[in-house]
């Protein structure tokens, strides 16, 4: 097992290197110049602009720039934002808590909704409950998040006026009232994400549970006279959840990237909206850092999913 983990980690490193190279090359090859704003500024003569380029290292060949960037990243330094002139890491640190809070709550809620509904749906296959649940799930993951978000805004902000539709991180109302305001503004973004994620997850839970229910050992458990509840909870559910746990782990990076859209709808000041503004501003260091962080998330959670699967399912052999 340990050897397996070590080997998987060793494979993950070249993957990350390759991804960062791909993104770096795309950014470097792209037309458009981060200094284009200076080009329009008559106060900056061309020689000065040339000097700035040289100081920023923009004239070096791509591999040299990549090597420089990489050496810094190893030390945990993502450079400075072209736009706000502050360290990229500080910008990300400032935005990350909001994103983590919204996404984390949404993902936990979606898991808590998806598992019981999926299990019940599978146990009572073709029942009215199952039909309703699968139909809602089907609709749920066919609904693009940007449309659900706008719909919620129309209903709860515009028509009913219950919830604010712009997320503010600057709420400073003291006491319980402030907490309530924080919760109120998070309700819609969390709902949008949770609805989409739980719909997809519920289908997995149901499929996995259906597969386990028909296994021989479940029939054996029934045959030896165990009560239905014990058969489902102790024999079927525990095994059905093995692939589900993997899916949950694999889904984390996707929730992060999916949050880019949700953050944009509700103007949540998280890293998703930071990415969008950075792309618009040609702020290469910020874009590179966030994309790289997303890539790291994908690789790490793939790794976690593999390891969890190995721990939960002792039938898997590592050779």
């Amino acid at each position: 097992m340990t050897r397996y983990i070590v080997r998987r980690v060793l494979i993950a490193i070249p993957t990350l290197l390759a991804i960062s190279m791909v993104v770096f090359t795309i950014l470097a090859l792209a037309p458009g110049d981060p200094l284009s704003e200076f080009a329009l500024n008559p106060a900056i003569p061309p020689e000065v602009r040339q000097n700035i380029r040289k100081n920023l290292g923009l004239d070096d060949p791509i591999p040299v720039r990549y090597a420089k960037w990489f050496r810094q990243v190893i030390k945990g330094d993502f450079g400075y934002s072209f736009r706000s002139r502050s360290p990229v890491l500080d910008l990300i640190k400032m935005r990350l808590p909001t994103t983590l809070a919204v996404i984390g709550v949404a993902y936990v809620i979606s898991v808590l909704i998806a598992i019981p509904i999926g299990v019940l749906s599978a146990v009572k296959q073709y029942s009215v409950f199952d039909n309703i649940a699968t139909t809602i799930a089907f609709i749920g993951f066919s609904l693009p998040t940007f449309f659900t978000g706008l719909l919620l805004i129309i209903v709860f902000s515009v028509k009913l006026g219950w919830l604010p539709f712009i997320y503010r991180s600057t709420i400073d109302t003291p006491g319980l009232l402030g907490v309530w305001e924080h919760i109120k503004q998070a309700i819609m973004p969390v709902t949008v994400l949770a609805l989409f994620e739980s719909a997809a997850l519920m289908r997995y839970v149901r499929a996995s549970m259906l597969e386990t229910i028909h296994q021989d050992y479940v029939r054996t458990a029934r045959a030896k006279g165990l009560p239905a509840r014990a058969v489902i909870n102790r024999h079927a559910l525990r095994n059905a959840l093995i692939p589900v746990v993997t899916i949950i782990a694999l889904g984390v990076p996707a929730v992060f990237t999916g949050a880019v859209v949700t953050e944009q709808i509700f103007r949540v000041p998280g890293i998703g909206s930071l990415l969008i503004t950075a792309i618009y501003d040609s702020d290469t260091p910020v874009v590179m850092a966030i994309t790289f962080i997303f890539a790291v998330l994908v690789v790490i959670f793939n790794l976690i999913a593999d390891i969890i699967y190995g721990i939960l399912d002792p039938r898997i052999k590592y050779s």
Partner: peptide, 19 residues
């Protein structure tokens, strides 16, 4: 596998914007 680990949405946004 490499393509599967690429962060799709950020890359999509990035490439469309740049090109």
């Amino acid at each position: 596998d490499l393509f599967l680990s690429l962060p799709t949405l950020p890359l999509l946004l990035l490439v469309t914007y740049l090109f």
